[in-house]
Design a binder for these strands. Structure first.
Length: 427
RNA sequence: GCGGUCGUGGCGAAGUGGUUAACGCACCGGAUUGUGGCUCCGGCAUCCGUGGGUUCGAUUCCCACCGAUCGCCCCA
């Protein structure tokens, strides 16, 4: 038996890293005053086909879609924004007293793709959605939050790329300009682009195959088609980023794959070596029409998704180690049936009193039990054998100093509490 | 979805058309009859991704599948 293709098990050793990263991120979210939202693992397929867009790669070839026993078409969520937006509409969060609604989530996403390093069929994302404000400062705040996560974790090789896709009017004008520009060269473009030219000409711009085509160079830039208000909006976002000291690069060809984006679009990439072909760590943008598309009132929104597998890869690529708690307070060593029985009871008591303790369950000899204690980095070993049982004591040995003292059983809990408390105070 | 490389114990890694599949780490046991980290000794793959084929005989050759990995597309 093997885990399905493109999925992985996160084993205990690794899970500690995940816990560390997640707690760091949650701490940052709290500082930014974002609240957690948890939505279902699957949605009605329509949420994504309408929300994300029928012409996108995600919807066309990457969704895990199935019919349930009632014949409903359901889809394992491939991204977070559409699902969160659906929940926002369904629960009328637009009526909340505090606007905008600032949300974050940790969630598994599913995409049917050929797996590679940094590309899984089930992946973990941290994401943020801010709904109900079209203040450019919110765009800057979301970008700031994402950058804060990376920077606080210690990443250095980062590149923030931003662009503006403009409002509806700007986009329509640009779209027409693109069609006029590329149609004479249609036959020279790759198959995908010929289709894109009809369905979503914007995406011709970020085609890797046709990058060398001369028409690319002279293609109309969205930035030249932004109307007055769109341009002003973009300028404001950039101004805020600059005032926050966040460096960025404007790339007019940054388009993003999803249909719902308008105005601000951004991507955060890693420059770290040994990262292979995958460089995007997070991506997001503004989606002012999405809530309406999903049946809610006209509500502006912005958000991003951050790949956590890629975040961990980036930490690795930059040789950043996360602090891991790999110590055990106590290990209980017992030999002889009576002693072992008493040890089981005492272990229970110690745990009930807040002390971290483990014992042997492999019926190992004393030497073997000490080896286990050593391997588990136990600070103290509590020894209970026939000798101790007779005297009604437990021998407490410090594994660091090797010092061993006799402690009456009835005082064991208090003594251990003291020892461990003291240890923590002394660092 | 397409192309390249790869698949031997828990991990790393040799190897060969023929009968006991090196070695290192880890693990278990002993030397040390109740005490860890060092040392020494011993143990540890009915089996070389799965299925089929070629052959007297395959882990080694061929095919398919599965999986991993790298690249393309696209993205997180």
């Amino acid at each position: 038996m093997k885990a399905p293709r493109g999925t992985v098990d996160i084993l205990p050793k690794n899970a500690k890293k995940w816990q560390y990263v997640e707690s760091k991120i949650k701490n940052i979210c709290s500082r930014f005053n974002y609240e957690e939202i948890r939505t279902p693992l699957f949605e009605h397929t329509e949420v994504f086909s309408r929300g994300v867009g029928d012409t996108t790669d995600i919807v066309q070839k990457e969704m895990y879609t199935f019919n349930d026993r009632g014949g409903r078409s359901l889809t394992l969520r491939p991204e977070g924004t559409a699902a969160v937006s659906r929940a926002f509409v369904e629960h009328k969060l637009f009526g909340e007293a505090n606007q905008p609604v600032k949300l974050y989530y940790f969630a598994q996403m599913f995409r049917y793709e050929r797996p590679q390093k940094g590309r899984m069929r089930q992946l973990n994302q941290f994401g943020v959605e801010v709904l109900g404000s079209d203040d450019p400062a919110v765009d800057a705040e979301a970008i700031d939050l994402a950058m804060t996560v990376y920077k606080e974790l210690g990443l250095k090789s980062l590149k923030l790329v931003i662009n503006s896709l403009g409002d509806k009017e700007s986009r329509t004008n640009h779209r027409n300009a693109l069609i006029n520009h590329f149609t004479p060269h249609k036959e020279e473009l790759c198959e995908d682009c010929q289709l894109r030219l009809e369905q979503n000409p914007l995406r011709v711009l970020d085609c890797k195959k046709d990058r060398e085509h001369p028409a690319m160079e002279t293609a109309p830039s969205i930035l030249d088609y932004l109307n007055e208000s769109s341009n002003e909006y973009f300028e404001q976002v950039k101004l805020h980023l600059t005032s926050m000291g966040i460096e960025y690069e404007v790339d007019p060809n940054l388009v993003r794959g999803l249909d719902y984006y308008n105005h601000t679009a951004f991507e955060i990439m890693s420059n770290a070596k040994g990262f292979g072909a995958i460089t995007t760590l997070a991506g997001g943008g503004r989606y002012n029409g999405l809530i309406e598309e999903l049946g809610g009132p006209s509500t502006p929104g912005i958000g991003f998704g951050m790949g956590l597998e890629r975040l961990l890869m980036a930490l690795e690529a930059e040789s950043i180690t996360v602090p891991l708690d790999e110590e055990l307070d106590c290990y209980f060593v017992a030999v002889g049936e009576q002693s072992v029985n008493e040890a089981v009871r005492l272990v229970h008591e110690l745990r009930w009193n807040g002390i971290q303790v483990d014992k042997d369950y492999q019926d190992r000899k004393m030497k073997g039990q000490f080896k286990s204690a050593d391997r588990l980095n136990a600070k103290y070993v509590l020894i209970l054998g026939e000798n101790e049982l007779e005297k009604n004591i437990v021998n407490v040995k410090s594994m660091e100093s090797g010092e061993q003292t006799e402690v009456p059983i009835e005082k064991l809990i208090d003594v251990m509490k003291d020892k461990l408390q003291g240890g923590k105070q002394n660092g």
